[in-house]
Amino acid sequence: MNRLTMPWDVMQFELRRSFTMGRIAMWFALVAFPVAIIATMRGIALASSANKFDPAEFIEPFGFTLYFLVPEVTCLLGLLLWATPAISTEIEGQTWVYLALRRSGRRMVLFGKYLTAVVWTLSASLVSTAVCVWLIGTDVMLRMWCVMSVLAVLSCLAHAAIFLLIGVLFYRRTMVSAVLYTMIVEYGLSFVPALVNKFTINYRLRGLLANWMGWENVRSNAENIFGSEPVSTHLMALSALTIIALGFALYRVEYAEYPTQQEG
């Protein structure tokens, strides 16, 4: 197998293997969850407006809800299922020993699994975003769809790298470690009005949301949550976090000694 094409071969294999009833149902569940919430919100807004629903009046509440449901929930749930157990599944399946014997096999397989997690999760996120924006029906629908789609891409790339690193470091308690990281760091520290929240992915994504949607009044009222940095700063921070986490995961997996099932 050519080392340059090995990650793509791994991704194709993993995606073909994902066509099972359980994983397809999981994909539809990730798509349906935000759609159901947005549809419910639209129904409530329609009822409260005496059947004269004006989406422009609810653009910010709908926008914040959609952002939270897709880049911060759907993306993370999908990546928890795909990126986090990248190593533990190979160890449990007793296939790790064969991958470890191949030259650059460890890194290439891990990178292939990273691509798989991003593609699988992003597909659900983009479909869900498109349906939700269509349901909202605002006059800035195209802008909102573009912004939420780009945020979903950035969220998948960055969070997948973090979860992959967690999976490499804590292969015995992978899911527990990833859930703790998510709850403490991304849903906890990212709202703390201190320097530490600037090192979280969700803080950067919220800053991009406010910048790209032009919600300056929201930023001025909640600067600790949405930040005041320009777009370039948020993008550079996300790029640095992604590259560092993914690079360290690939470096670590090359030299780590994982026990086989018999040894464990």
Rank of each mutant, 00 (worst) to 15 (best):
residue 115 L to I: 01
residue 114 Y to P: 13
residue 74 T to I: 12
residue 58 F to S: 06
residue 57 E to T: 05
residue 118 V to A: 07
residue 113 K to I: 11
residue 124 A to Q: 01
residue 131 V to S: 11
residue 96 W to K: 10
residue 113 K to P: 07
residue 76 L to Y: 13
residue 64 F to I: 13
residue 71 P to A: 10
residue 54 D to W: 03
residue 112 G to R: 02
residue 107 R to H: 11
residue 96 W to Q: 00
residue 109 V to Y: 06
residue 62 F to C: 15
residue 111 F to R: 06
residue 118 V to Q: 04
residue 133 V to M: 02
residue 76 L to P: 04
residue 151 L to G: 08
residue 116 T to C: 02
residue 77 L to V: 15
residue 130 A to L: 15
residue 138 T to P: 06
residue 83 A to F: 09
residue 53 F to S: 02
residue 63 G to F: 00
residue 97 V to Y: 00
residue 134 W to I: 07
residue 60 E to D: 13
residue 143 R to W: 14
residue 139 D to P: 00
residue 146 C to T: 10
residue 80 L to G: 09
residue 96 W to Y: 14
residue 73 V to E: 02
residue 93 G to E: 12
residue 81 L to D: 05
residue 137 G to A: 09
residue 111 F to S: 03
residue 129 T to G: 03
residue 89 T to R: 14
residue 72 E to C: 11
residue 86 A to C: 14
residue 101 L to H: 01
residue 90 E to N: 10
residue 48 S to D: 13
residue 145 W to H: 05
residue 140 V to G: 03
residue 148 M to K: 00
residue 128 S to D: 04
residue 148 M to D: 11
residue 137 G to H: 15
residue 127 V to S: 00
residue 145 W to N: 00
residue 82 W to C: 01
residue 114 Y to Q: 11
residue 148 M to I: 15
residue 90 E to S: 09
residue 78 G to P: 15
residue 145 W to A: 03
residue 104 S to R: 04
residue 141 M to R: 05
residue 59 I to G: 04
residue 121 T to D: 03
residue 130 A to T: 14
residue 149 S to E: 08
residue 103 R to N: 06
residue 106 R to C: 04
residue 122 L to N: 02
residue 115 L to P: 13
residue 75 C to M: 12
residue 53 F to M: 08
residue 138 T to N: 12
residue 103 R to L: 08
residue 132 C to G: 01
residue 109 V to Q: 07
residue 61 P to K: 04
residue 94 Q to Y: 11
residue 91 I to E: 06
residue 79 L to N: 07
residue 58 F to V: 10
residue 80 L to S: 03
residue 138 T to F: 09
residue 68 F to E: 02
residue 70 V to S: 07
residue 113 K to T: 09
residue 142 L to M: 12
residue 144 M to V: 12
residue 146 C to V: 14
residue 74 T to A: 08
residue 88 S to C: 10
residue 141 M to G: 01
residue 50 A to H: 15
residue 51 N to V: 06
residue 129 T to E: 03
